[in-house]
Design a protein around this nucleic acid. Structure first.
Length: 1025
RNA sequence: GGGUGAUUAGCUCAGUUGGUAGAGCGCUUCCUUUACACGGAAGAUGUCGGGAGUUCGAGCCUCUCAUCACCCACCA
């Protein structure tokens, strides 16, 4: 039957994929041999909102190659897929969807209702990427697809059951009980857009154009001092009497929260006023707050004025200074980044603050947090508007530091004149500003209560694992980056003020009662015990109840009130203070922490949360997994956290190898972005060239640590490669190679067949070596060169005369060999190009198993027959040289020419005898004749074992032929010089290894033979000329 | 400011413990020869970023300079 001209990827791929899935070919353990070891790869879970982009396509290809390879080898494989709930991204997307469809806002519908909407959204629109992954040919076990929010209490019954949520809570409780998680009021990165805290990693520092303003803080009670500036040599350069201290700031709006002005203790300029008070020059004059001038190690005497305003609640440096000095830290902004509008009137707050500053008033954290130091005129303003107003107000009052600026302007007559003005001193300068990586708004440091993982306590095993080689990071440069980050790790802020996520399993009650438990029943139980032991109440004397959601559900609150005999107000109050019920029992209310966990907290548990843990699931046999393949951009976010979490929870490393790759860029090496319009959609590439071509291209560019540039031309090239493979089978079809079932390795007697079998052996060795060391590019290139460069270019051509010939024995052997060789190519190419190979496997022959489960070969270099190898290489070499010479002198391609030789040793003679049919056919030689001397005007073909000649008198342009030969003599001369130089150097003989010495000597002999032959050829031509 | 990596053919990149440079694409010439024009044959192109050093020998190791890229970082 005639095959189609090319492989129709568009129609075949879905059909083949369906066939695999229907057969359960990708299920965990499919095709595993008895007693096989496990081999497990965890897919980095894409966001549930995600689409397949080139980065996914790239690393999926690598994972699939490994998994398919191992599956064919009979390992008990699992490629675990799944989705990440992606807190912020998903919540944002659903909120947008609500807005677009005219539904109530998140805050209007309330938490429970909103979560229902998110689950609905997930059911209808989420997980698109899993369908797209199928188009790539990913052999994941989709029946096990996991979700990081599975099993959450908000999940609808229709959601496939799962227990990832249990895993997350169990781990939280464990770490909490071990003292590795704590809660506290800290300065954290606050995202005013999403109104949540975020971790350090989610902040992107960008250089932006900023300004630095200089303001005067007047000294209290009109005090003055002599301000003296000196140069490096100690000479006085400026002396003036000042009644203020000059400070520089890029954030004037935070002045309202200043707790002090700090100078360096060695700064002589300010020594006279250290300990004095100065006035914050903003707000109503009567209430202006006085703050102390203190010393601290932080101010840099050489920067700005050397004096720094300290705003503990709005700057990370100032926070440290304020802590050291015990300064009050006044928070000025609300969750949206606007100036606070809550609290008491400014007059009252200011009075309290002044008392604190004078030392007349004790203060604590809670009291400070409640105080609003924003004057009425600024309340409610956005932080950036407030900044403008502060600047304007201070400048208007004459408290901005002024300086003279001279500029050139044209006067009325058009002449240029210099005008000098005194203007406020504002420096334009580049400043590093923190932005939220998702929201793109300026991050505001905010003093809030948050949960932290005390990473210092769990980091060590993760570091050790890599240091002692238990887990290897590839490329190695990744290890340095890993060490650097983990060695300097900061506490990890894990609480988020979002709704979509794992709600923190901690409940609070009266009198500081705090319990951490995996569910509410356990929490109530634990709370009872604590009340019992800590507050001395007997079991029968009190009840505890979780009232977390009662406020949202009026009817439940009613029911609770009816049950307990308390008023609704009393029930809500019972969290703060136990309430006495009608029956005399004390009622303790518990409410659950409303925050959710950082998405990466749950992703950090991916290596075992997907395998059923904490339940005793059979799938846990796949833990620890083998290799993790992911982008190096999430080394800290995810990889390091998995290392820490696996060790903290299970005391094992989650994998032995971490393969990190770079960002996939466009052909020019630029980042892909929608605005640049250079985004390549992998699905478009699949549509145009088939998944196999994209996969081969991915494998081919996967050089370790290399820059990844995806190019459509390349993909197209590998589509062509697929067609080449297809046509090799078409060739076999054309010559009616009989079906052999699953072909066995033939016993070859023909040199040609012995040779190609050896090439198959070499290829299998090289491919295995490449895949074992994650050199996907080497594997791809090896297979490409083998299939195209050996099989198609030579073996198929060589086999033609035999297949068309009369020697039945040789024909049968060659048919069997051809079939086997092509089958080996399919098997070895399958991990990279699964579709076309499966299709050819099925159409070429009848098979016991699908290719996806075919046995990966185990033969190796023992298949190489050195004599056959040498002979075929000699043959190929002769053909190439004849062809080259023919082309050089423009012999018509179709014309047959005679070939002569002078001397031929036994080996050469045998090689000729064995292969003359091939040589004559492929080099278009009509005859071979022995001559005593090469005729004049003959092109010389130096070969090991003898000299051949093409008698092409009349066709050759003698001078240009001589020039050509002389050119090669020059090249040869250089090489000979090098070889002789080395061999004549006694130190070389002494220090070079024996192999290298022998190789060099053999090489020299060969080159010398060649030199003699070329010399003779030139001499002959010279006679002619 | 600290760190990491890169610099090899016109382009994009390989080059695994030092042994004397390769691939794909592109380009030039020829060929529709019965698997394949998504093809075949032949061909051109490199002081391996500059400089110095170690070595018998360096694209690879050391130092230095230059350019580029990325990551991290609190200078008001």
């Amino acid at each position: 039957m005639a095959m189609e001209k090319t492989f129709d990827a568009n129609s075949a791929e879905p059909r083949i994929y369906q066939m695999w899935e229907d057969a359960g070919a990708f299920k965990a353990g499919a095709n595993a041999r008895d007693g096989a070891s496990t081999y497990c790869i965890m897919l980095p879970p894409p966001n549930v909102t995600g689409h397949l982009h080139v980065g996914h396509a790239f690393n999926h290809t690598l994972m699939d190659i490994l998994i398919r390879w191992k599956r064919m080898q009979g390992f008990d494989t699992l490629w675990q897929p799944g989705l990440d709930h992606a807190g912020i991204a998903t919540q944002l997307m659903v909120e947008k969807d609500l807005a677009a469809t005219g539904q109530p806002k998140r805050t209007e519908m309330g938490r429970e209702k909103f979560l229902e909407k998110v689950w609905e959204w997930k059911a209808s629109k989420g997980g698109m990427i899993e369908q797209q992954a199928r188009r790539l040919g990913d052999s994941m076990d989709f029946s096990r697809s996991a979700f990081t929010m599975s099993g959450a209490s908000s999940a609808p019954d229709t959601e496939k059951p799962g227990n990832f949520h249990d895993a997350v809570l169990q781990v939280f409780v464990k770490l909490y009980n071990d003292g590795k998680i704590y809660r506290g009021k800290r300065l954290v990165n606050w995202d005013p857009h999403f109104e949540t805290a975020i971790s350090d990693l989610e902040v992107e520092n960008r250089e932006v154009d900023g300004h630095m303003w200089h303001f005067k803080y007047p000294l209290a009670n009109g005090a003055t001092y002599e301000y003296v500036e000196k140069d490096e040599d100690g000479n006085v350069t400026l002396t003036e009497t000042r009644d203020y201290i000059s400070i520089a700031t890029t954030r004037p709006e935070t002045m309202l929260g200043d707790g002090a002005v700090a100078v360096h203790k060695d700064d002589e300029r300010y020594a006279p006023i250290v300990g004095m008070l100065c006035e914050i020059p903003v707000g109503p004059k009567e209430q202006r707050r006085l703050i102390p001038i203190i010393t601290d190690q932080y101010p840099d005497m050489t920067f700005g004025s050397g004096a720094v305003k300290i705003t503990g609640a709005h700057d990370f440096n100032d926070y440290e200074v304020a802590k050291r000095a015990g300064l009050p830290m006044y928070a000025l902004m609300d969750t949206k980044g606007a100036m606070r509008a809550d609290g008491k009137p400014y007059v009252e707050e200011a009075a309290t603050a002044q008392a604190i500053a004078r030392g007349d008033q004790e203060f604590d954290e809670a009291m400070i947090a409640a105080m609003n130091m924003v004057p009425e005129e600024y309340r409610g303003l956005d932080r950036f508007d407030a900044r403008e107003k502060v600047i304007a107000d201070i400048t208007a009052e004459g408290l901005a530091v002024m300086h003279d600026v001279t500029r050139t302007v044209k006067n009325d007559d058009g002449e240029k004149v210099d005008v000098t003005e005194t203007v406020p001193m504002v420096e334009n300068k580049k400043i590093m500003q923190p932005f939220g990586d998702r929201s793109n708004v300026v991050i505001e440091p905010a003093l809030t209560d948050q949960w932290f993982v005390d990473t210092a306590q769990i980091v060590q095993p993760a570091l050790d694992a890599v240091r002692n080689g238990e887990t290897k990071i590839m490329p190695e440069s990744g290890e340095k980056v890993y060490y650097h980050w983990l060695d300097n790790i900061e506490p990890w802020c894990i609480s988020r003020q979002l709704w979509w996520g794992h709600q923190i399993p901690v409940w609070y009650g009266p009198n500081g009662l705090t319990v951490c438990a995996a569910d509410r029943f356990e929490a109530l139980d634990l709370a009872s015990k604590k009340i019992n032991s800590e507050q001395g109440l007997k079991d029968g004397d009190f009840t505890v109840r979780d009232i977390s959601s009662l406020a949202d559900y009026e009817h439940e609150l009613d029911a609770a009130a009816y049950d307990s005999g308390l008023t609704k107000e009393q029930i809500l109050l019972s969290c703060d203070e136990p309430q006495r019920r009608k029956d005399g029992k004390l009622c303790f209310g518990l409410y659950r922490d409303p925050d959710v966990l950082d998405t990466w907290f749950s992703s950090g548990l991916w290596p075992f949360g997907t395998l059923g843990w904490p339940a005793e699931d059979e799938a846990m046999k796949y833990f620890p997994g083998d290799v993790l393949i992911t982008g190096q951009d999430i080394l800290f976010f995810w990889v390091a956290r998995m290392m820490m979490m696996s060790n903290a929870v299970l005391e094992e490393n989650p994998f032995h190898t971490i393969y990190l790759h770079q960002l996939v860029r466009d052909a020019k090496g630029e980042k892909m972005s929608k605005t640049k319009g250079n985004v390549i959609d992998p699905l478009d590439m699949i549509d145009a060239y088939g998944a196999d071509a994209l996969r081969f291209s991915n494998a081919q560019m996967a050089a370790l640590g290399g820059v990844l540039k995806i190019s459509e031309d390349r993909i197209k090239g590998y589509r062509n490669f697929g067609t080449k493979l297809w046509n090799a089978f078409s060739f076999a079809d054309h010559y009616e190679i009989p079906n052999a079932g699953d072909s066995a390795m033939p016993v070859a007697t023909q040199t040609l067949n012995k040779w190609i079998i050896g090439e198959v052996g070499k290829t299998r060795v090289a491919v295995n070596a490449a895949l074992e060391t994650y050199r996907f590019n080497d594997a791809a290139n090896t297979l490409y060169a083998f299939t195209w460069g050996k099989v198609c270019d030579w073996y198929l051509e060589f086999s033609k005369p035999i297949l068309q010939g009369e020697d039945e024995t040789a024909k049968l052997e060659t048919q069997a060999t051809l079939r086997w060789v092509l089958d080996q190519a399919l098997i070895m190419l399958h991990p990279i190009m699964p579709f076309i190979t499966e299709e050819l496997w099925g159409t070429a022959d009848s098979r016991a198993k699908m290719l996806v489960h075919a046995d990966w070969p185990e033969y190796g270099a023992e298949l190489v027959d050195a004599d056959a190898d040498a002979e075929m290489n000699w043959t190929i070499n002769l053909i190439e040289t004849v062809r080259s010479n023919r082309a050089q002198v423009h012999v018509p391609a179709g014309a047959k020419v005679p070939l002569v030789f002078t001397d031929l040793d036994a080996k050469g003679q045998a090689a000729w005898n064995n292969n003359h049919v091939l040589i004559q056919r492929l080099a278009r030689i009509e005859s071979l004749t022995r001559v005593d001397d090469l005729p004049k005007g003959c092109v010389t073909i130096p070969m090991p074992g003898g000299t051949f000649g093409l008698p092409l008198e009349g066709l050759i342009d003698v001078p240009s032929e001589i020039t050509r030969l002389e050119k090669s003599m020059q090249k040869l001369g250089k090489e000979l010089g090098g070889l002789r130089g080395r061999l004549n150097n006694p130190k070389f003989a002494a220090s070079a290894p024996a192999e290298v010495l022998a190789e060099t000597q053999a090489n020299l002999a060969l080159r010398e033979e060649e030199e003699a032959q070329i010399k003779a050829a030139i001499a002959r031509l010279a006679e002619l000329g």
